[in-house]
Design a protein around this nucleic acid. Structure first.
Lengths: 137, 137
DNA sequence: TTCAATTACTACTTATGGGTAGAAATTAAA
DNA sequence: TTTAATTTCTACCCATAAGTAGTAATTGAA
């Protein structure tokens, strides 16, 4: 019961970038070193994030990554969706295909409250919000 | 962000058994058919659950599986622990090693409430409780 | 004792996530 | 135009989860 490495890294990367909005672009090298994330893995993840249009990439000399939208407009849930880690409404915690109001799994009722709270948190936390907390990593 | 197949299957199996306490032992064949879980995978999981002493196994003819303790004494969290799916107190949602009250990850504060609620749910839901809800699967 | 019904064990295969290597493409500046 | 700094692409490798196959061990009953 945890987030994938890709989601963990992505959240750390983007929250770090949001924390350093003064520098317009940040390179993969800098992010990799500052956040202690394997360089090659980081570039792979960043390519996914660029395709999802949360950031833009500038290739070539003096290139790097920059936000495509304001950090106040980017939700943690947007990041989780890229790596298929978001908690979907219709998805059953026990993995059965017909878990709804009528036929439901053994944990359906108990799971409802923590699930809703988690979804709410992921869907209401913007990068700007979590960045302004004095977190360095 | 979801449980492993092993945990999902295990919860379904044990909650099914708790729902059918009249039959003392249940065979792997019956569980596999009723719950639509691959037979070989089910027996592998059951062996782990037996080792964790939640159920006992009776080998040989007329054998099968039976509870080692009352379903009212078995928590969902006990099952998650077997397959390393439980949410540990000290485990950071972003996977950093020094996430505590002083130095904390970007999501630390936001994660606290849903995490606590989830832990509480897994640690307070007994098999008996979730079984008595008219769930067949 | 033999047989059939059962779980346990060992070893394998397949799928997926995490991670790495090398080269290609792009671009600003010298 | 050349060079160096960058991202991107393709193709791998490794570890683990998920699932399968075959056989050994156990046991009640005929």
């Amino acid at each position: 019961m945890q987030l994938s490495k890709s989601s963990q890294y992505a959240i750390r990367i983007l929250s770090y970038m949001a924390n350093h909005k003064d520098s317009k672009v940040m390179t993969a090298t800098e992010l990799s070193e500052k956040l202690d994330i394997p360089y090659k893995f980081l570039t792979k993840i960043m390519t996914d994030i660029v395709k999802a249009q949360l950031v833009i990439s500038i290739r070539g000399r003096d290139g790097g990554y920059a936000f495509a939208r304001e950090p106040s407009e980017i939700l943690i849930n947007d990041i989780l969706e890229i790596f298929h880690d978001a908690i979907e409404d219709e998805q059953c915690v026990l993995g059965i295909g017909f878990c709804n109001g009528i036929t439901k799994c053994a944990l359906h009722d108990q799971w409802m409250e923590p699930k809703m709270l988690m979804q709410k948190m992921f869907r209401e936390s913007t990068l700007e919000k979590i960045a302004g907390q004095g977190c360095k990593i």
